[in-house]
Write a protein that binds this DNA or RNA. Structure first.
Lengths: 209, 209
DNA sequence: GTCTATAACTAGATAGAC
DNA sequence: GTCTATCTAGTTATAGAC
């Protein structure tokens, strides 16, 4: 296993758990059993390492998302909002095959990117992976044509918030559910619970101005 | 205006915008025009300063929330979920009288506390302000009695996520809305838009197991 | 209470031997 | 490609003069 790979494998988990600011290169390199200088040799800087960590997941995920969303847009029958959000489930779950706990790690990273680095992630995703966004908004428009662009803008951001925040604290929530309700859940169960919630939120009656 | 007050007034905004980790004491003291050593003299440590910042808001907010939620619980007519979430609106908006941009600053701080400091805020809120939680869950139970405790647990966490995340990025969202839709909005408008969303989410059909 | 000065430490990044 | 050693700059926190 290459040094580069070892660094990425340790960095994503640490970044997900403690944030980008909260994780030092020393922590990453010592856990990865590589030299401190290796990060700068292989990636150039901490910022580039962060980009590499995100890209590795997005490059795995975005083709899957694109094909799942394309299917919905091209299908002759109108999809429901549940269908649209459910299109994300399988590609996200498949990240667990890509890497252990890949799904929750990626979703936590997404949350970190949104809050830690003041708009960096928004820039990164919209410039590097614009197709996913276009396909997604088209799919939502097909499922709920009455929703105007402005209202959709807000509700999709609310949805992003729900998902990202839930996943950032998913480990804690799963622990609490285990203790309080004696249920052993995994990330897939959490996703199954959050989809009806966001679908109902997006489908909420439109407020008058 | 006392040194202590000046520090708190600068610290909350910086913490809200850049996170706890991302804000240094040097930044706070220089913006507040006080000496670097003043933080440690008045608060003891950075961690205690963070607690003081949060307490100042919560001590202002929690009595208002308690009385608004008590009203709902004691009223003879059954409240709707919209009523329950709307009970938060006025107390939150009133934070703008307490301090300029108080509402968004506080809600951003809430988000920071959840994600920056790995469960510290959860501990802080549930141990220091338990009444608000009890009253809130009781109010939701009255509004939607069919919702069992476990499902409510999940949906309230989803809601927390939606609110906190939305408010963390509310400034960015308001800017985008200005540019894309030529609408000048404020935090109150954002709250008015998010309430129907979360109310619909909590009211979503209960999934079968 | 407020200041300067500095201690004690940690961060990211790099030069140069191997 | 990997290492040690070190640089520079940042951090929190504190000691002691005023």
């Amino acid at each position: 296993m290459s040094t580069k790979h070892k660094i990425l494998d340790v960095a994503d988990v640490l970044f997900a758990n403690k944030g980008f600011n909260g994780t030092s290169l020393r922590e990453i390199t010592s856990q990865a059993n590589v030299n401190l200088a290796a990060v700068n040799y292989h990636f150039g800087s901490k910022k580039e390492l962060i980009k590499a960590v995100m890209s590795r997941y997005m490059d795995e995920l975005s083709p899957q998302l694109e094909s799942a969303l394309s299917l919905l847009c091209e299908s002759t029958k109108q999809p429901s909002l549940n269908d649209v959000f459910s299109a994300f489930t399988q590609p996200l779950i498949d990240l667990n095959c890509f890497k252990e706990n890949g799904t929750s790690t990626f979703l936590q990273l997404l949350g970190r990117g949104y809050t830690d680095s003041q708009g960096f992630l928004r820039w990164f995703l919209t410039t590097q992976y614009p197709n996913v966004f276009t396909l997604f908004t088209n799919a939502v428009k097909r499922a709920y044509p009455e929703l105007n662009t402005e209202e959709m803008f807000w509700r999709l951001h609310f949805t992003m918030g729900t998902i990202v925040f839930t996943m950032s604290s998913s480990e804690a929530l799963i622990d609490i559910a285990q203790n309080d309700f004696d249920k052993t859940l995994d990330i897939e169960d959490v996703i199954a619970r959050v989809i009806p919630y966001v679908a109902a939120g997006v489908a909420a009656p439109i407020i008058k101005e």
